[in-house]
Every structure is written in C-alpha cells, then in structure tokens.
Design a protein around this nucleic acid. Structure first.
Length: 866
RNA sequence: GCGAAAGUGGCGAAACUGGUAGACGCCCUGGACUUAGGAUCCAGUGCCUUCGGGUGUGGGGGUUCGAAUCCCCCCUUUCGCACCA
C-alpha cells in the first residue's frame, strides 16, 4: 500500500464534475465574443425538442459536438457553441390537453428541467445565447422574415391535400394516421383539399441541387438523398387531343424514346378530367372516393394495390393518330408533373402491372442489347437501355439518341416542348394547430389577403384558449380572429394557420450569432462573422427535410441581404441512433429489464413466467421500455464515464448499441488513467516535461509512443474517429502503467521523470475534449495552474516519431510465413536477400521454384513460387 | 413501391491510397493479491488441428503476386418518403 491510495486521492466523479461545472459557469469560460482578429469556429448541434427529459440520443449528439468544440478551442479558434430549444410543436398541445394546462407552461417547465440535466454533462456552451423558438422575440422576428419572403414573392397560397379526420374534424399528421385511421378517433382518414400557405422552395431547386457540389464535407449519402429528393429530370411535355372534347390532356415524360409504345394514359384521382367524369358517372365517383381514402404520404400512395378505372375518354396519339383509352389510376400523383402520364407498359413496371390487370395492349419499342423481347413472354417491364424498334422513323436508334430525336421532332412540329421537372414540391408551411408561430396575415373581403404591418408585429398567441375544441383552437377565438383590415380598416379575419416548426429550425443558427439583437431579425455584421456553421452535428433522419429547408431559407435570406454565405453548414456529421435490446412478453408486452427473470437458462416474464422474446437492438424508445435514463447514468458514474462510453462504443456515424458492461469498461479506464496520473504526479513535482528523446531504449520507446499517440489522436479527431482516438490513449496509458510497475524507483532518473511527466500530461491533454472534468482535475494534480480549457493542443515532435527498427512481414504466395525486424532504412536488395535466407522461408520454398519477388518498402516481401 | 446505407470473433469494434485480419474494450477461463473494491494485477481467448499447419471478414463468382477493401450476381438488416421533431 502506498500513501497515494488514501481516500481523498481516489477518483470521485461527483465531486470533480460539480467543481469544474461551477467554475465554468461562474467564469463564463465558454462565452463567445466576436473578435475579428481571431479565426472563428462555429460548432452547432441540432437543438432538441423540449420533451422534458434528455435521452441517450441527445447525450450522444451533444457529446460529439462538445468534443469538436473543445478540440477546436484548444487548436486556438474562437469557438461559438450555442444551445437552444425547438419549442413549438404538437406534443405540447397533446400534453396540455391531457393535463388541462397551457402548452407554453408545459414547454417552459420542460426547458428548465432539460437545461438542468444538460448542465450535468459538462458541455462547453455559451448559455448567454440560449433561445427557445417560442420566445416572443424569436417568433416576432420570424414573422418579420416571413413578410420579407412574402414581399419577394416567395410566399403564396394554394389548395393542397391534407389527412382529414372526419370525426375529430381535424387535420392529422402522417404519423397520426395508423393503418388509414385517425390515432384518436379511429375513423377512416380522408384526403381533403385545404387552402394553405406555401414557400416557393422550387424557385431555388437548381441552386439547391447544384450547391450540393460546393459541400464536399457533407456525407455523400446526404448529398445523394437531397439530390434524389430534388429529383431534377429533363423530359418532354406534350398534350394528347381528346376525342370529342375541346380541351387537351397534357403529360410529362422522361422517356420520350418510348413514345411509340404508348397504349393508354393514366391520370390522378384529383385530376380535373377525373372530376368531370365523376359528375356524370356514379361508379367513377365512387372509385375516386375510394382513392381519396388513403393517406397523403407518397409511401402510402405507392404501396397501394394498382387500381384504375376507365374514364371512357379516348386520347389521340400525337404521332400515330391512334385512339387510346384514358384511365384514372391510384398510383399517379397529382403533385408531380401534370398529374397525367403516357403509359408504356412494356417499359415501365407500374404501367406493365396495370396493363396486365386491365387487359391492355403491350407494345415493345426498346430491345435490350443481346436479347429479343416478345410480348407473349414478357414477365416484367424492360426499363434498361436498348435499341428502338416498332418506332417508324426512329427505328434502330440507341434509346438515348432516340430521346433527343423524339423531343426534337415534337419541338419541330410544334407538338410539345422540352421541360425540366422536379420531384421537389413547394414547402407547405400551414399547420392547423395552436402551438406554433402565427402566420401574420389578414383576410379582408374587400382587399383580399393583407400582410400584418410590421409595426403591428408580433402576432402573439392568445394565452387563454380552449384546446378541446374540434379543429384548430385559434379558429374559435373571436378575440384572435376578429380584426380590422390594415388597408381599408373594415372588419376582417386573422389567419389562424400557424407555421411548420421547420420554419424555426431554418434560421435558429443565425439568431444564435446575435441573440440579443433587438432592431431586427439579424445583426448582419455579427452573423457574417460567425457564419457559415463550420461543423453541424445531428441525426441522419434530418438528411433531407430540415437540412434542405434550412439551405433554402439561408439562400432566400442571402438574396434579402441578411447573410453573405451561400450555404449555412460547411461541414456536416450525421450521427447514428442509440439502440438497446428489447424484451417482449406475449402477455404483458414490452418489459423493463427488472421485470424479467432467468429460469433454467431462459428469460421469462417475472409476472407471468411466459418466455421472453429478446428483440434485436432497437432504437431506444419509451414505448418499448428499452430506454436508459442519462440522469441515472450520470448520477452513478459521472458525465465523463457517460461521455467516454458514447464516444468509444462506436464511430459517431454508426448506430450505437447500449451496453452496461461497456459503461463499466469506460469507468474502469478513467480509474486507470486517474491512478497513473496520480502516481506520476507524486514523482514529478518540479520536473519539466521531456523536450528530447533519451537514448535509453525503454525511455525512447515511451517517448516515441507518446508522440505517436499525439499524432494519431490529432488525425483521428479530425475525421471523427473518437473510438480509435480513445483506443490510442488507452494504449499509451497501458504502456505507461506497465513501465511504472516494472521500474519501481525512477526517482533518481531525471530523464525518466521528464518522459513520464510528458506522457501523463499528454494523455490528459489528448483526452480533455472527450472527458473534460477528470482531465481538468488531473491537470491540477499534476501541478498546473492554468486550466486545460485554456491550453493548446499538443504537437507531435517529428524527431520522436522516427523509429530505428521496423517489422517487415514475409509472405510466400501471399501467405504470411515469417517476420523480420530490420533497420528502417534498409536497402531493398538487402531486405529481399534477408527474406530469401530466412530459415522459415527456406523451409517453405523447398521443392518450389521462385517465380518473382515483390517488395513493398517498409511493409512486406512477397515471394511468388511454384 | 421509391430512395439511402450497413453486413468482420461469444459481443461493440479496428485495419491510412489493395499489403501482418481482429488494435482497443466487453464477456469468458485459469492464477495472484487483500484496506472485500464499481476492486486491482498476471496469463489465455476467431474457428479447426494429428501442434506441422489448415481455415476465416453475409453467400457465390471474378480481377490481382496479394482482396474485409476493387468488379458482377444473390441474401439479410436498418433508415427516409414532405403535417413527428
């Protein structure tokens, strides 16, 4: 037993963490101040919805962000690392209904609770910049931005489809529609048209797509997903004449090369032509009604069994003059293109299936290279490349050339035009809900739609509101809706739609830059100092919507002169989910681990003794009883253990599997670190860290390892390899600990003490961004006055990295047969000869003839022999 | 349905541009120690083995001196799909 084992020198995370959190808070260590002399670094994590408790997903997200922010700070950057709350949204309304309380009360109480929890994680935030999107000033300036967009023509109203619950008389979110029924009422959901507010994101479609190429530090997967989402396609738009009707049927196609294979047309259920027929034909009206009884999501539409109904109309093929039928089909989207398509069953799978069901002709017009398709044996559509056939003057053309020539022919004859279409639709921002930012508009019978004058902003949410009414509560509040028209001063009605919460998250990163600015939404100077965000971190589930809306909003504000950059987020990291096993009992449903017992080697439900089905790792979720409460973890092990486990268990982009024993492992490592640094600290008062490498082999190895670790951890953090960075420091700590136990009395060896101090300080410095509390404390124990938060990141000494000897592997026919330890600067010929004369190799080569020898310098020798 | 990813020991994972597969950690086995601690330390730990070696990165082919890594086909799992945030 040594004196250093005494009680007060044991690692006590609770005391250490409280101590440093208080110091950081009191000293405002992480307050960010604009300083044009210094290089800035804006580190941003996706802000949370204030659900009331933080969960492991938050812990992971904010730990990753914190490591990056603290690392950049040590690299000398002026770091902005803010935190706030995405505070509007449906859950507050649902909770308030349940508790007979107000959404704002519920929300702000949750924020207070979550802020408290977050503070126990030791995150390096500038809390002075905290914001909640439901704050009066945030809502105010968002309304002002909305009006600016309105002035620029980027806001308009149009009819669009919503999920309508006929019993509750309310609009449902897609997630509130379960198997086609309303989650509360259980009523069959209908598609219904409503006048709604839209932002013209499609005006920026090209820039949003092309801009992806300026974002090399975004994950390729996210860029691909956004590109697919925008879905720019080049094609042909033309119209079919309709027999006996004056109007035409416009269609859009990306496959003009299949024009001669058209055997019918399909239109959406909402298509005007479909409605026309419905008026006269009750059967068709019933079919359209049937189509309207599915959700509005693209998924639900496309998963439908392909169904259709003949309208009786005949369209005239523009090139052949052939009469072809027009069908209503439930898989045609009114929101894409013209809501009508030319159908080519031989070369489109959906058309193929549809034609089979309805007995429609199939005509092959593209023959794939090397085969000949026949209608009689066709089992599925051929959508690949090929040569055009049965296409008159286009016969024999490669289908790509054919595309161009068919379009040229249509344009030349005035039958159609080339068009670029997008899958991207304009952004519907109207929500028929109370707890959101009001859309600042007024409806006047005489003047039409009139914006609320800027001087009258903000339009505030009324606090006294009955949430239990059907539909949008704001509709029923005369004190809110009854206003005078700002133009004619006559009686008018206030808009009651509130904004999509994606509006708030589209510009919060800008408001953080100038949280206290009161003259307008944004203080341009400060915003332009901090922007763009250098590192954005959040869940992959936001790959498309939030990240696309925010990019659009940013570009629109740029054109308004409020920001200078073209893109808001320079570098993006999308982290995976936190998952854990689930335990399911057929009798009692999802069980908590404590509700499960082990009997005879199998798990059973402790209530009913039924066997438990252990689920694969699933996303932590309250409903599945597989959540681990971060607060409990932090109370038990401390924030540093929680952070270390999160960072070590998996690379950040990947899903993380929860493991209680893994947490123990993290805890044990911090204790090993603590003991090593404490033991070194006892030995090295007054000793400076080593500046040069001693000649003694053991010390030389220690110092080389120290600097190799600096080198590796630096590179690892750069590429978010937190797990391998930790592994590298673990190796360093293991090496240091072993050296210390094998060299009991290094007191008389100043060189050894200097190397030891350098090793211990290095481990502490390198780990500081990851586990900030314990490292601050150890830094102090090492006798350092200035906190680690103000220290610079260590630099590897290039001379210490040079190794004299290296290990070379020797292979015979690609298989490992021997290892050689050779001088690092060995000549290639010497190495080759050494390999050929190695006893193990000689044995292996017996009876074989050497064909050739491949030498990879510094790595291996491969002898090819027969 | 469309789109995007991922498959490596008992488990989480590592392997820079094709060059020692399994670093680091967990679990487990054997041993040591005792201020009995959330211990700690030492040794072992992919599989098979006649102890020479053989074999092994979801499956099947291919390219290469050499493939977890590159190419083709197949299988499985996860995520997103516009009113959840």
């Amino acid at each position: 037993m040594s004196a250093s084992d005494s009680q007060e020198l044991r690692y006590n995370p609770q005391a250490v963490e409280a101590k440093w959190q208080q110091i950081w808070e009191k000293e405002k260590t992480f307050r960010a101040v604009e300083d044009r002399q210094r290089e800035k670094f804006y580190c941003l994590v996706m802000f949370p919805y204030p659900s009331g408790r933080i969960h492991m997903g938050h812990v992971r997200n904010y730990t990753i962000g914190d490591v990056i922010a603290r690392h950049q700070r040590m690299l000398g950057k002026n770091v902005l690392n803010p935190m706030g709350w995405d505070a509007f949204g449906m859950p507050a309304e649902n909770a308030a209904k349940k508790q007979n309380s107000a959404p704002s009360r519920w929300t702000y109480a949750n924020i207070d609770a979550m802020r408290q929890e977050l503070k126990t994680m030791g995150l390096a935030y500038d809390w002075d910049r905290e914001l909640a999107t439901s704050d009066a000033d945030y809502a105010h300036w968002e309304q002002a931005l909305f009006l600016k967009l309105f002035d620029r023509g980027l806001v308009y109203r149009k009819k669009s489809l919503v999920n309508w619950d006929p019993v509750d008389q309310t609009v449902l979110a897609n997630e509130q529609v379960i198997d086609g029924r309303g989650w509360r009422s259980g009523a069959l959901v209908e598609r219904r048209e409503l006048s709604q507010w839209f932002l013209r994101i499609t005006a920026y479609a090209d820039e949003l797509l092309d801009g992806l190429e300026t974002l090399p530090e975004w994950p390729a997967t996210v860029r691909t997903m956004q590109a697919n989402w925008i879905g720019r396609s080049h094609g042909l738009e033309f119209s079919f004449d309709l027999e006996g009707l004056s109007e035409k049927l416009p269609v859009y196609t990306t496959r003009p090369d299949t024009i001669m294979g058209v055997t019918f047309c399909s239109i959406a259920a909402e298509h005007p032509l479909a409605r026309r027929v419905a008026d006269q034909n009750p059967e068709i009206a019933a079919f359209i009604q049937e189509c309207m009884k599915s959700g509005t999501s693209e998924e639900s539409l496309e998963r439908l069994e392909k169904k259709g109904f003949d309208t009786g109309f005949k369209a005239i093929h523009p090139l052949t003059g052939e009469r072809i039928p027009v069908f209503i089909a439930n898989f045609v989207l009114m929101s894409y293109g013209t809501g009508a398509v030319m159908a080519v069953p031989a070369h489109d799978q959906r058309d193929f299936e549809f034609a089979q069901v309805h007995g429609l002709p199939i005509r092959i017009v593209i023959q794939p290279p090397g085969q000949t398709l026949e209608v009689a044996t066709l089992r599925e559509a051929w959508t690949g490349p090929g040569i055009m056939v049965n296409s008159q003057l286009f016969d024999g053309l490669d289908h790509e050339t054919g595309k161009t020539q068919v379009m040229d022919e249509f344009v030349r004859r005035g039958l159609g035009r080339r068009r670029t279409h997008y899958r991207l639709r304009d952004w519907g921002i109207s929500r028929q809900r109370y707890w959101g930012n009001p859309i600042p508009m007024i409806h006047c019978e005489r003047c039409g739609v009139v914006p609320v004058p800027e001087a009258d902003l903000p339009v505030s949410l009324p606090e006294q509101v009955d949430l239990h009414v059907q539909g949008n509560p704001l509709d029923h509040l005369a004190t809110f809706t009854d206003v005078f028209c700002p133009q004619c001063h006559g009686p008018a009605r206030r808009e009651t739609d509130t904004m999509d919460t994606f509006m708030e998250s589209s510009w919060y990163y800008l408001r953080y830059c100038c949280r206290d600015f009161q003259e307008g939404p944004l203080d341009v100077d400060r915003v332009n100092y901090w922007m763009p965000v250098d590192q954005y971190i959040g869940g992959i589930e936001h790959a498309v919507l939030h990240l696309l809306y925010a990019r659009f909003f940013h570009k629109a504000l740029r054109d308004e002169g409020l920001v200078a950059s073209d893109e808001p987020f320079r570098r993006l990291l999308t982290q995976g989910m936190v998952r854990k096993d689930t335990l399911f009992c057929s009798e009692h449903g999802w069980r908590y681990p404590v509700e499960v017992a082990e009997e005879g080697g199998t798990l059973v439900c402790s209530a009913c003794r039924q066997p438990i089905v252990v689920g694969r790792n699933e996303k932590m979720s309250k409903s599945k009883n597989n959540v681990v409460d971060p607060a409990e973890l932090i109370r038990g092990y401390g924030a540093d253990t929680a952070r270390l486990f999160m960072l070590f268990a998996a690379p950040p982009q990947q899903d993380l599997e929860w493991s209680d024993t893994g947490v123990d492992g993290a805890w044990r490592f911090l204790n090993r670190l603590w003991r090593l640094v404490r033991d070194v600290a006892v030995l090295v008062p007054g000793i400076a860290p080593a500046q040069t490498t001693p000649d003694e082999p053991g010390l030389k190895e220690l110092r080389t390892k120290t600097h190799e670790t600096i080198d590796k951890v630096g590179r690892d953090l750069e590429r978010f390899g937190f797990n391998t960075a930790i592994a590298a420091v673990m190796e360093l700590v293991n090496v240091g600990t072993r050296w210390l136990s094998e060299n009991q009395t290094p007191e008389g060896n100043p060189q050894a003490l200097a190397v030891l101090r350098e090793l211990a300080e290095t481990a502490v410095l390198l780990l500081h961004p990851l586990v900030p509390h314990i490292t601050e404390e150890l830094w102090q124990i090492l006798g350092q006055g200035k906190p680690l938060a103000f220290q610079s990141w260590p630099k590897a000494d290039p001379q210490a990295l040079v190794r004299g000897e290296i290990t070379i592997i020797v292979q015979v026919n690609g298989k490992l047969r021997a290892k050689l330890t050779v001088p690092a600067d060995i000549a290639q010929a010497d190495l080759e000869s050494l390999a050929h004369h190695d006893p193990a190799i000689l044995g292996n080569l017996q009876g074989k003839t050497v064909v050739k020898t491949i030498v990879v310098p510094g790595r291996l020798v491969n002898i090819v022999a027969k």
